[in-house]
Amino acid sequence: MKSFATLTQMTVFARIAESGSLSAAARDLHLSPSAVSKSLAQLEERLGVLLVKRTTRSLTLTEGGRLFLERATSILSDVENTLDTARQFGHPHGNLKLSSSIAFGTKQLTNIVGRYLEAYPEVNANIILDDRYVNLSEENFDVALRITADTHWGYAARKLACIRWLYCASPEYLANHADIDHPQDLTRHACLVYPAMTLDGAWTFRRDEHTQHIKVTPRMTSNSSLALREAALEHRGIACLPTYLVAADISKGHLRVVVPQYRAAIVHTLYAMYYRSKYENPLIRSFIDFLANEFGDTPPWERDALAASGMPYAKEYPRELYSLASA
């Protein structure tokens, strides 16, 4: 009678190979190092093949180990896909691991996820905020929310909302500096610059079908819109900030839109990125559908910001003005 390797043993072996050590695999799997070592020994005994060469400082796969890993990885992926297919007939439950940029996650995502968890009490969420692009497979994320204009990814993605930006400053700053009636007037002001919102060092302004590029000298530059918002609230100058970040500040009068007859010409897009094969999982599908329903045609923060600033809502901008940097 043949002695088969169990799925658990294959899972443990795959984690050992990926992490490069038994102790790291034990931490990832929430097992003791002795349990991981025992599982590997039992697997090698069942197969009659040495899979791993171990020394005090390193761990390497044998030729048999590399071949077995390739097949085991394929089998485990098939098993997961089979489980996802079965899950589509059930209710969303389990752990949802999400990735988001720091600014959007802080200001918008946590509240949205909270409402989703209220609707689906059998779901738990793990939100990781990081401005770098994550690898969904290597880091085991279910959904990554990214604000960008790039469309070249290795994942499926659903467009959720356009992310627009406003030029704004505190009332205190504006009261103590020269009037701003035209974008050109900004060349005489302290500018708080987010690099992804410039084209060759210029801020861009759009009115009707006309676009202007105003070269500004940054008083402060940062790759964090959160940092620039704080500087604007502290009366340091004029910043170009996303509506999802400053809608409440504008509604409360803490920030004021400058030259409201103009719009920032550069626009980004919010996407939910995921593996297409996982979309049949009701946990992932229901969350993405929930996001789309929450945002609608016009996200709530966009309505609030434009209503408070008196600016008209614009559906689209010319494609050539879309920034390729993430926000």
Rank of each mutant, 00 (worst) to 15 (best):
N281P: 03
E294A: 06
E280N: 04
Y244S: 10
E294G: 03
A248I: 05
E280L: 13
H235L: 15
V246S: 00
P218S: 09
E294M: 03
K252H: 12
T269Y: 15
T217M: 13
I288H: 13
V257P: 12
G237K: 03
A292V: 04
L228Y: 01
I238T: 02
Y274G: 05
R219T: 08
H254C: 12
L233Y: 06
E234M: 14
L255H: 15
L228P: 00
I238Q: 15
E230A: 04
Y244C: 10
S286M: 05
E230C: 07
R263Q: 06
L226D: 03
V267E: 03
A248S: 13
L226T: 02
H254Y: 04
V257K: 11
R285P: 04
P260N: 08
Y262M: 06
L228I: 06
L291P: 15
D249S: 05
L233M: 11
G253C: 08
A232K: 05
A248Q: 09
V257W: 14
G237V: 02
S222F: 04
I284N: 02
L241V: 14
R285T: 12
V257R: 15
L233H: 02
L228H: 12
N293Q: 08
D249T: 10
F290A: 06
I284Q: 09
S222Q: 01
L228M: 02
S224E: 00
V259H: 09
C240L: 09
V257L: 10
V258G: 13
S225K: 00
